[in-house]
Design a protein around this nucleic acid. Structure first.
Lengths: 186, 186
DNA sequence: CGAATTTATGTACGGCCGTACACAATCACG
DNA sequence: CGTGATTGTGTACGGCCGTACATAAATTCG
């Protein structure tokens, strides 16, 4: 029963998954289709339905991988932070925002797309919630839990509005609300 | 086959618009189609394309109306607030969050859907940005501009995460980050 | 009353979609 | 080699889509 038979092309499945992630980042959830994935992966249409029976399997798998990759990246970012003062943490967080807005725009857009999609599709919730959860963990390593939660809310708000806006925020528009939480006296 | 006809049916256009708004709230942007609108409005398919040449016209019109309605409602909410102390403002804002989460869930979900859609479709930006803009104006009437901006970011973050989460936030989860900005000493 | 014009609609075209499924290719094993 | 079992694919079905457009009804005007 469990005997292994037939030709194994383990790279195939992986290539399809990777193509799905690429497609999601480029076109968003709405751009996902068996046909588009097959085109992007360079495999026949039948392959995508063979390895991933339904389109949701494809979406779930790709979003889980993408969010886990992001979580890993963010943890590493937090680990390289040392032991900053509140004022320094403000600057580090502002750097983070600017870095992401400049270099990870597609990932950010997808994360918010995922959040709003999760509001109508409960099966996407776990992946959507993982973003904020990870941010909270990483920041909580450098401040108290309450402040960490508030900081995450502010960060999400900044990113959300910056992505929807026509122009990127100034440095001061980023640091001011963060400083209001971390260095309220000055 | 058709019954009554005539150029004078001024309600027609309006009924289509209203049906579009209803459909958007119920099904989201992805659920919008000429056919679905026609069904919802009880008009023939040809009518929707006659009054609104393209689907985007329909979407733009409906989102503009919905956001303006929300802006109006929020201004009225702000006007009925009196002159609260910071501690009272925290409670009022928490009430606002709870009210919206309980009674305007569809509107909120759509607003975030609109934000994330605007990240890929610039023509939706004006409507998307109006939400935060209005919140800022209304709150700025009761505190300084910097704090108002930070409060809006926190509010958006709270709503975003609450809608994506499985369970609604506790009162304390709402008030704590607001109080961190408004009453940092206590 | 006709004729021109405006208003409204039914239908059809071409396209993309998810997915089922008959069928081909490949391999394990006797 | 043969013979299943397993893996992989091309194709086709039914459905929903946006939108163009011929045509019908109502109104307007000479």
């Amino acid at each position: 029963m469990a005997a292994k038979r037939g030709p194994a092309d383990p790279g195939r499945r992986e290539r399809i998954m990777a193509a799905t992630q690429r497609l999601l980042l480029e076109e968003g959830i709405g751009g996902l289709s068996h046909r588009a994935v097959a085109r992007e992966a360079g495999v026949p249409l039948g392959s995508t339905t063979y390895y991933f029976e339904t389109l949701d399997d494809l979406l779930d798998g790709a979003t889980r991988r993408l969010t886990e990759q992001y979580a890993h990246w963010l943890h590493e970012w937090g680990a390289g932070l040392g032991d900053p003062s509140p004022a320094e943490l403000v600057e580090h967080l502002a750097d983070l925002v600017e870095t992401q807005l400049a270099g990870s725009r597609a990932e950010l857009v997808l994360s918010f797309e995922l959040m709003s999609a999760a509001m109508r599709r409960p099966e996407l919730r776990p992946a959507a919630v993982l973003y904020a959860e990870t941010e909270r963990e990483v920041i909580a390593a450098h401040t108290d839990p309450h402040t960490a939660r508030a900081l995450v809310l502010v960060l999400d708000g900044i990113l959300l509005q910056s992505l929807a806006a026509r122009t990127p925020p100034s440095r001061e528009e980023i640091t001011a609300p963060l400083a209001a939480l971390l260095t309220p006296e000055g």
